[in-house]
């Protein structure tokens, strides 16, 4: 494991750059736990201070230090993304493996549902739910809703692998020796699809964060809880660009772009590492 990581860092520039960006983000997230004041508090510091030695990233018109605001936002946004990714992974794996292995009518039924859900546009559904639930729409509920919308592509991907696995000899062997379906899925097939799961997790994380940012910018979330999108929402609400407080907009934007590029580079390099064909190409074969 460590050897793989070391080699990736040494020979794969995308991986090195990606992990550097993510490391910076994670450092900021860790810093959020050492914030000198509560993240929800307003007018804790002098408002509208430009970035400088006292306030590294400046302060906003609500009297919040941008650095601590960013740290808390990054943490909340990341946690949201990870929760969505984890829940939707569990669903995607279960649906993909079962659908691919069981096949037949079950497969058709599950995939019909899967494709229908996948074809529905996500943002309007979420907006509708936000309007309906209003105050009950806390971030865990939002995360759950997003997770229930975000597994369809990956379950199809996993199903396609499971379709091939079910006809392999080792599956027939396992069935012949009397393993139950759940055992076959968990012990024989799950290890096989794990690399795909790792890769799709990162893509899903990016998607989930993008969703959160979109909804928050529009104000469709708990606006008092600092998130990346929420920061931009407040900046717009105070006309930060007109008032010349550019750092209020710039800080969350730069941070989220760093996060996206970092995750994307990691996903790409890990995918390249997992795919034997591109690994061979890298070796010069």
């Amino acid at each position: 494991m460590f050897k793989v990581l070391r080699d990736l860092l040494r020979y794969n520039r995308e991986f090195l750059f990606g992990s550097l960006l993510i490391a910076i983000i994670l450092a900021v997230v860790v810093a959020s736990y050492f914030a000198p004041y509560d993240e929800m508090m307003t007018y804790a510091v002098i408002p509208d201070m430009p970035p400088g030695s006292e306030y590294w990233l400046g302060t906003n018109s609500r009297g919040q230090d941008m650095f601590w605001q960013l740290a808390a936002s990054m943490r909340n946004t990341l946690i949201f993304g990870i929760v969505v990714a984890l829940i939707s992974r569990v669903i995607a794996i279960a649906v993909g493996l079962i659908s691919g292995y069981v096949g037949g009518k079950t497969d058709q039924a599950i995939m019909a549902f899967n494709d229908t859900l996948g074809a529905l546009p996500n943002i309007p559904i979420l907006l509708l739910l936000v309007f309906v639930l209003r105050d009950q729409m806390t971030w865990p509920v939002l995360a759950l809703t997003a997770a229930l919308l975000g597994w369809t592509h990956d379950s199809r991907l996993i199903r396609s692998v499971a379709l091939s696995l079910r006809t392999r000899e080792f599956t027939r062997h396992a069935a012949f020796s009397g393993m139950r379906t759940t055992q076959i899925l968990l012990r024989e097939h799950l290890p096989y699809v794990m690399p795909i799961v790792f890769f799709t997790t990162m893509n899903n994380l990016i998607w989930a964060i993008g969703l959160e940012v979109t909804l928050s910018i529009l104000g469709f979330s708990d606006i008092n809880r600092p998130t990346i999108g929420g920061m931009i929402y407040w900046a717009n609400a105070h006309s930060a660009m007109v008032a010349g407080i550019w750092w209020w907009i710039a800080v969350p934007m730069v941070a989220v772009v760093m996060l996206f590029i970092g995750l994307f580079l990691l996903a790409m390099s890990v995918n390249e590492y997992i795919d034997p064909r591109s690994r061979l190409a890298r070796m010069g074969a």
Binding site: F170, H173, Y192
Partner: peptide
């Protein structure tokens, strides 16, 4: 099955799961 009757399958090169160690095959089957 397996206790009294076992089966060496066609293409038995692929009877072993490529992503799991041999001991797991023995454990599973």
């Amino acid at each position: 099955r397996w206790q009294n009757l076992s089966y060496i399958m066609q293409g038995s090169m692929s009877v072993l799961n490529p992503v799991r160690r041999i001991k797991h095959a023995f454990n599973d089957f």
